[in-house]
Amino acid sequence: MNKTLKLYGLIFIIVMAVLALLELTKSDVTDWRKNFDVHEKSPFGLLIFSKEVDHLLKNKVQRTDLSPYDFYKTQKLKPHNILIVQSEIDSESWNKILQNVESGSDAMIISDSFNKKVADSLGFLPSRISYEDSNLLLLTDEKFAQDSLKIDKLPSGKGFELILESDEILGKEESDSKMANFIKISHGKGNLYLHAEPLILTNYYLLKPGNEKYVQDVFSYLPDRETVWFSGANKNRTESRSPLRFILSKPALRYAWWLFLGGLLLFIIFNAKRKQRIVPVIEPKKNKSVEFVKSIGNLYLQEGDFHDMMAKKAQYFLNRVRMDLLIDTKDLDEKFIHLLHLKTGKSVEEITEVTELIKKGQDPYASVMKEDLIKMNTLLDGILQ
């Protein structure tokens, strides 16, 4: 493993450690959004109501994720109860609900918003009836006089006005006894029960002691029969069908998944760069100069031409004297001997002897022996070593 990969690995481990430390030390943040989700444990989710609704309605609850329009296209039921909690109901679904109510069904719709066109046709007007930070919800029936529910966290303050004489007020807020937040509207053979404060069914309020009595009183208006709860209608988003939905639903797993993808992306980016090719090992060319010199030397020895070798040796020596010592070699006289003595530090006798051997090598008619060549070579190597 090269140094670059080690560095990336170290950075990755440090980032992982920091994220793990942050995850372990972070404090849980309460989600106060009004999600009205039957699977949510947050304060304004409907998880507790979803678990208790069967007991509340005597195990006669049929749940469906379909819209009322899609459900009643394939289902034809005898008179039954309809339950919808905080949903945006389209016009076609409202028509199906009203058709069933007209045939004898009863609908309990708990929401802080209603379709204006439907409201006009039924003879009521959704309105804001309170701007208080907290409201006490009461029921008008004397037998429920002791049961109330206080909305002390994010009340909607919604209600109804311009109610027809045939409509019945079932609940109101203590702050304004003239305005209703829970009404009954007769429609054909059935009734619609409209409640404008869906927070009464959320986890936060159902967990408060005594509030369950108010909720039981509200649902006591429904007849004892099968209830169809459009539990999926209150979802504003469709559930993900991705294979990763479990991982993405858990914060710790979600962080780990994105960190893994980020690390993988970095690894791909840095390793996608063109790497240096392996440099092949090339054997250096052998220096055969020595072999060449030996071959030439052997050739001269075989020929036995010591005079020629001595002349070439003298020529090479004088060339070095000119180039390195800057001494004129035209005349090998006393001046030459004196200058060479000064620049090399060798004795005058030694230089004089070498000079005589050089002259002998340059003389084409001189008789040269092997011993002369050896002696000249030894003296020259000693002078310019």
Rank of each mutant, 00 (worst) to 15 (best):
T227G: 00
L299W: 15
L222E: 01
V215C: 04
L222G: 00
R254K: 15
G263W: 10
L261E: 04
D224F: 09
Q276A: 14
F219K: 02
S249T: 01
V281W: 14
L259E: 05
N298M: 10
S231A: 14
G263P: 10
P223S: 04
S249Q: 06
S289P: 00
S289N: 05
F246W: 13
Q276H: 04
N271Y: 12
G304M: 03
E239Q: 08
K285M: 11
L222S: 00
N234T: 05
L253K: 01
P243D: 09
I296F: 07
S295W: 14
D217Y: 03
R245E: 11
I278Y: 09
L259G: 08
R225W: 07
L265I: 14
S231H: 08
V279S: 15
F246H: 12
K294E: 13
V279I: 14
N271I: 05
N234F: 06
P284M: 03
F246M: 06
R225T: 11
A233E: 08
K213H: 12
S242G: 03
K275E: 13
D217G: 01
L222A: 03
G262S: 10
P251S: 04
K294N: 15
E226L: 13
L264A: 15
D217P: 02
D224W: 02
F246N: 12
K286D: 13
Q216Y: 12
I269M: 13
F246D: 10
E226M: 15
L244S: 02
R237N: 05
L266R: 03
G262V: 13
S289R: 09
G297L: 05
Y255D: 06
Q302H: 14
I282H: 09
L265M: 12
I247T: 06
I282N: 07
V281Q: 15
E291H: 07
V215A: 04
K285S: 11
T238K: 15
Q276N: 13
R254I: 02
